[in-house]
Design a protein around this nucleic acid. Structure first.
Length: 919
RNA sequence: GGGCUCGUAGCUCAGUGGAAGAGUGCCUCCUUCGCGAGGAGGAAGCCACGGGUUCAAAUCCCGUCGAGUCCA
């Protein structure tokens, strides 16, 4: 990145000098002309530990001072956004204050909610999960305080680099920071397809803030700037994106050895008390501070070596406090995650929550704390009540979810340990378990390698388990990286083609009940026709496209084209027709007619989706969120987040509530509202079906606001029009997500009728009244089982009788008693019983039985003769004659074939085989 | 979103093409003053469901349902 990007007037006017760091060679700006290093770790150790940078402040004080400072400089204060980034499909968690405004505000498609603005945004990053508690500075959850200015080229600039640096300098000065110690380090920034110059604000070895000047975006073919092999070009917008680490400021003001001791000392105290331990800061203050100073510079092992820490000291003093720090951090993370609606799961953001939960369980176990995790999370929520009072609303949900998670975790452990033990046993002969075996146990059953090692040492089989340091990265490598979805070339060409066309007027919103319309053809290409206006609803929001016909006005013999599909490309609606689209000229007038039955079915199902979602949220709780939906003519589905299976009772309750909403015949209101206004008014639950990329959004409201969603679908005007709603079934498509299948309107009636038909038919077969069906079916099933047993017993008796009879018909071949016969009315199983008994009585047998188109063959050889001849060989040879095959053990074998006519020949073959082979 | 593992007696699980098994629990009897313990016998299975391959499927293949787990 060009050096000139960092020539900022403010620096020059205020006596800053630019230098290159002696250690990392990065450029930096400082007031101190003698400074040689950039000031950031690892070029400099933490000098603020034990020596705070400014007067001690709490998190609440810092946050308020920051927000107030920028408010007084013309910024609008915004409330926090959720920690789960539901408005983004490329992120699960909110990782930065700018995330709130990506991608549509940063790209200029949607205006910012205020400009400039200031916010303190709780963020969650789990990349360094393993370092949490150990590094002294990593947190899963942190508040990023940011002031943002969204500038657009050609419009008057709000402010850019100069004011951003000035604000920063003034804010630090106001806090009482020694300004000579502050450095601004040049550090080009990139992320999420954007990039720009950036200044890191550092003091005392600690990076306090990052000032990003985002003005570049990724481009495919040779842009203006190349950063690390990627080409970037200037954006239409240029954005001030700053991130001030709230926790860092608090830490700097307290000078504690770790950020944890600065942020949640009360939580640490509580955990230590529960664990019956003392804080090493009280017992070993000097050592703890020495360690802390080096933490930014070197690894734990190196520190231990340098400071001569004994392994015993590490184990008994350092490791427990690290676990305490981690739990204190995780409880805060979980409070935000669950309160903001994440349901623990085995996929997506739910998996991330479970990761943190299970790590917490493990830490609590090593600390021998048996206080339930939910109680600790609730403790932490109490500490946060001033800044985040909303968290307290969710304590019941948090309790329920976490205690459920505990149960599940314990079950997984018990089960997994058993599997691990078994696997270890398998390898006891070799004496060691190979790596791929332990990877598999972890991958399939969730048993971490440490636990396997523990089990191995307890079992005493002496099986060595080899766990390399890069175990987890090997696991990750195994899961081959999936290909990034490239933009469909068809879509690209459609976009190119429709770029110059005006947006199609959407008649289906204004006249949702009409079926015919007239319009003018604007363009035709491929199979597509573009009109100036249309009633045809394009596929979107889980609602399928309309179908129907387009007819020209050229008399009765004008071509009629069937519309098979309709799609919207950036507001231009394409009608895909069967046949040649270019048979209609540009500029021609056409009449369109939609399939009304189909449309109405979709309309009912769409309104029903909103009603069912509302009902589910009412019955199951506020954590319920739509996780996908698809409408159809006969049935539709809606996926919702929920932490356990929906019971039959709950399902009935949801269904009843939904139908009550129908019967109340509430108005389904539709209006257009400015996006930022709507968000303020209704919150993010607007976006159940995704976030529209526009300034104004269409809002669909149920009744008095029971359910309010941003939705582009066609709807009934009153709930009564939806008709009956029948929930057909629930299915768990993944842990934490339930899929509800339902039908509405006529389809619901048909579904109910179909079920009734099923019951009626079943009852008719059994000749019982419908209400007796369950009892009768049970009786039949029981009787069937009984008959099966009786049958088995009779078979046994029959076999015994036949054995007696057959014994009298034995031939002697080479000194062996041989019985060869065809038995009526039996099968392989029956033959086996007889053959086995005869073998016991030292008879060699070749038995056959004829069924419809099949001959079963069984041969048995008594144990005393098994070295002379194999039953398996006899059966094989016999079955060859029958055109089949067979096999088994030397003592008893079975087979068969289809050439029923050869049965006599097969018998003779059997005898011959015995005679020849047994010699 | 992409993988991996698993569904067998009430419970915990063996069995991986050739007769449905073990441990535990349950029932009966013996032993004992009684309990524990021990001994003998017994009951208990749509081998998750539906297709396919095969002479033959709990076992192999495909699909469905259910459960667990890892990665992004």
């Amino acid at each position: 990145m060009d050096k000139s990007e960092y020539r900022i007037e403010y620096f020059e006017e205020n006596g800053f000098v630019r230098k290159d760091c002696k250690k990392c060679s990065s450029g930096f700006w400082s007031r101190d002309p003698d400074r040689e290093v950039c000031g950031d770790a690892p070029c400099e150790t933490y000098s603020f530990i034990g020596k705070p940078i400014f007067k001690e402040k709490t998190a609440d004080e810092i946050r308020e001072s920051f927000l107030a400072f920028f408010e007084s400089h013309g910024h609008t204060r915004l409330k926090r956004y959720p920690v789960v980034a539901r408005w983004r499909d490329d992120l699960y968690l909110n990782i930065a204050s700018i995330s709130n405004f990506q991608p549509f505000v940063t790209s200029g498609k949607v205006p910012p909610p205020a400009n400039p603005l200031v916010i303190s945004q709780p963020c969650i990053r789990l990349e360094d999960l393993e370092s949490i508690g150990k590094s002294g500075r990593h947190l899963t959850t942190f508040e990023m305080m940011g002031h943002h200015a969204f500038n657009k080229r050609g419009v008057e600039e709000l402010y850019w680099k100069n004011d951003t640096v000035r604000y920063c300098d003034e804010y630090l000065k106001q806090l009482g920071v020694d300004m000579d110690s502050v450095t601004y380090k040049e550090a080009p920034w990139m992320g999420g397809g954007n990039a720009g110059p950036c200044l890191e604000v550092v003091t005392g070895g600690l990076e306090l803030a990052t000032l990003v000047f985002m003005d570049l975006e990724l481009t495919q073919n040779g842009g203006v700037t190349n950063i690390e092999g990627q080409w970037y070009k200037k954006m239409e917008t240029y954005i001030v994106d700053t991130g001030y680490g709230l926790e860092r400021f608090v830490w700097a003001s307290k000078g504690t050895p770790t950020v944890y001791d600065a942020i949640f000392p009360e939580m640490i105290h509580e955990l230590l008390t529960l664990a019956g331990r003392e804080h090493p800061l009280e017992t070993h203050r000097e050592q703890m501070e020495d360690i802390a100073r080096l933490c930014g510079v070197m690894k734990k092992k190196e520190i231990a070596k340098k400071l001569n820490l004994t392994p015993g000291f590490v184990k008994t003093v350092i490791e427990p406090i690290e676990a305490v720090y981690a739990v204190a951090d995780h409880t805060r993370c979980l409070a935000f995650m669950i309160a903001d609606g994440i349901v623990p799961s085995n996929a997506k953001e739910g998996y991330l929550a479970r990761l943190v939960i299970r790590r917490s369980f493990r830490m609590l176990k090593t600390l021998t704390i048996d206080t339930p995790l939910e109680e600790l999370v609730i403790s932490h929520i109490k500490l946060l009540r001033n800044s985040f009072p909303e968290l307290e609303q969710y304590v019941d949900r948090i309790s329920e979810i976490l205690s459920l998670e505990k149960t599940r975790y314990e079950e997984t452990l018990i089960k997994g340990e058993r599997i691990a033990k078994q696997k270890l046993k398998e390898y006891s002969a070799i004496g060691k378990m190979p790596l791929d075996a332990s990877i598999k146990i972890y991958d399939s059953h969730g048993i971490p390698p440490e636990v396997i090692v523990e089990i191995a040492s307890e079992s005493g089989d002496g099986v060595a388990v080899d766990i390399p340091d890069d175990f987890y990265s090997q696991v990750a490598k195994m899961h081959a990286e999936e290909k990034k979805g490239e933009v469909d070339p068809v879509v690209v060409s459609q976009k190119e083609r429709t770029k110059t066309l005006p947006k199609t007027l959407k008649l289906y919103y204004d006249k949702p009940t009409e079926t015919e319309f007239e319009a003018t053809v604007l363009d035709t290409f491929d199979d597509f026709i573009v009109l100036d206006k249309t009633l045809f609803y394009p596929e979107g929001g889980g609602q399928p496209a309309d179908t129907g016909f387009l007819t020209t006005f050229a008399g009765s013999d004008g071509p009629e084209l069937r519309v098979e599909d309709v799609l919207s490309v950036d507001g231009v609606i394409l009608h895909k027709v069967a046949g040649a689209a270019n048979s209609i000229d540009k500029g021609a007038s056409v009449r369109g007619r939609i399939d009304y039955q189909r449309r109405m079915a979709h309309v009912r199902h769409h309104s029903a989706a909103h009603i069912v979602l509302w009902a589910a949220r009412t019955v199951l709780g506020g954590h319920v969120w739509q996780a996908g939906a698809q409408k159809g003519e006969d049935r539709s589905r809606i996926d919702i987040t929920h932490f356990k299976r929906i019971s039959r009772e709950e399902r009935s309750e949801i269904e009843m509530l939904a139908n009550k909403m129908v019967m109340r015949n509430e108005v389904i209101g539709v209006h257009i509202e400015e996006k930022n206004e709507a968000e303020k008014k209704y919150g993010f639950c607007l976006y159940q079906g995704g976030v529209p990329a526009s300034k104004e959004i269409r809002i669909v409201q149920l009744g008095a606001g029971e359910d309010v969603q941003a939705c582009a679908g066609t709807h009934c005007s009153k709930t009564g029009e939806v008709g009956p709603i029948k929930i057909l079934r629930t299915e768990r498509i993944q842990d934490g997500i339930e899929r509800l299948w339902y039908s509405a309107g006529e389809a619901a009636v048909r579904a109910i009728q179909a079920r009734e038909e099923l019951i009626a038919k079943s009852a008719a077969v059994l000749k019982v009244p419908q209400e007796k069906l369950p009892a009768t079916v049970e009786r039949f099933f029981e009787e069937w089982k009984q008959l099966k047993k009786d049958n088995e017993r009779l078979r046994e008796e029959l076999a015994e009788l036949r054995v007696g009879w057959l014994k009298g018909h034995a031939k002697v071949i080479n000194g062996m008693n041989v019985i060869a016969d065809v038995l009526p009315d039996t099968d392989t199983k029956g033959l086996m019983k007889i053959a086995a008994q005869l073998a016991e009585a030292e008879f060699l047998t070749i038995l056959m039985s004829k069924q419809d188109n099949h001959v079963s063959v069984v041969s048995s050889v008594p144990a005393i003769h098994k070295t002379r001849i194999s039953a398996s060989v006899v059966v094989k040879r016999v079955c060859e004659v029958l055109g089949g095959g067979g096999g088994g053990t030397p003592e008893i074998a079975q087979g068969g074939g289809e050439n029923v006519a050869n049965i006599e020949e097969a018998l003779l073959t059997g005898l011959r085989v015995v005679e020849e082979e047994s010699l």
